[in-house]
């Protein structure tokens, strides 16, 4: 069903890596790929790929283009394209993605909105002027 691999799974040369023995607090905003193996509290936003490792603990609102989550997330996750939640992942929060892949054993407590179709542009009725 999911023939295309998630680009966030194998980030080759991430500019930003949060290692396992580090804690980040605040609004973490980046234009580049991000790998998180440590602890983040606040907000995470990237216009590219995000990978949250197995031991990572993220208490944050997440925005990313593609995401590959294997760690613990508390907060809403919004992904523009592909989101993969692996068997070791635990998410407490609402999830929004264009394509969602979830492995058996993964935990997701929250609402889930997945819509692979492009957003329909609903035109508002125009007012006729006399």
């Amino acid at each position: 069903m999911f023939k295309e691999e998630n680009p966030a799974k194998d980030i080759k040369a991430a500019e930003t890596i949060i290692g396992p023995s580090v804690r980040v607090e605040g609004d973490f905003i980046s234009q580049h790929d991000i790998i998180i193996d440590g602890e983040v509290v606040g907000n995470i936003s990237t216009q590219n790929n995000l990978r949250i490792g197995k031991g990572a603990v993220v208490k944050a609102k997440i925005d990313a283009k593609n995401a590959y989550i294997s760690g613990k997330v508390i907060g809403n996750v919004t992904v523009k394209d592909k989101l993969k939640i692996t068997e070791t992942a635990t998410i407490k929060g609402n999830v929004t993605a264009k394509i969602l892949e979830m492995e058996q054993g993964a935990s997701l407590v929250g609402q889930c909105k997945v819509d692979p179709r492009p957003e329909d542009k609903v035109q508002a009725p125009t007012k006729e002027t006399k």
């Binding site: 949060i18 023995s21 580090v22 804690r23 980040v24 607090e25 605040g26 609004d27 440590g38």
Partner: peptide, 14 residues
């Protein structure tokens, strides 16, 4: 301290 966030090591040998 970065402009919008701060980072702190949690391990002694960092």
């Amino acid at each position: 301290h970065f402009s919008k966030y701060s980072i702190k090591p949690t391990h002694v040998t960092n």
